[in-house]
């Protein structure tokens, strides 16, 4: 039951990632693309944490941690580019 619910939650999160990719594809300008990339990283990071719960291996949480820090770096540099250059 718990596995089924986690599977359902991860599938809903992946569908949300697909919607964010639609905004990334269509969005006008750099600002909406930066926001879409931020939304995508904020969706995939809890998916990693949920998969760590699903599989019971705690090393996966470290991957989610590194991923969160570095995607923040990427989105911040993108927003800085949209403001006044890197």
């Amino acid at each position: 039951m718990v596995d089924l619910l986690l599977d359902l939650a991860l599938s809903l999160a992946a569908g949300a990632a697909l919607l964010a990719v639609y905004r990334l594809l269509m969005g006008p300008g750099a600002a909406s693309r930066a926001v879409a990339m931020d939304v995508l990283s904020l969706i995939i990071m809890p998916m990693m944490a949920g998969y760590a719960l699903y599989s019971g291996r705690m090393i996966y949480l470290d991957v989610a941690l590194v991923y969160g820090i570095l995607s923040f770096l990427g989105v911040t540099s993108l927003a800085r580019y949209a403001d006044k250059g890197v």
Binding site: I44, Y51, S55, R57, V66, Y67, L70
Partner: peptide
């Protein structure tokens, strides 16, 4: 990177997140 994690290669996923995304 998520797909590497899903294929149970967390070290490759961490490297991909560091190099590719950052």
């Amino acid at each position: 990177s998520y797909l590497f994690l899903r294929l149970s290669a967390p070290d490759v996923a961490m490297t991909e997140a560091a190099i590719g995304a950052g």
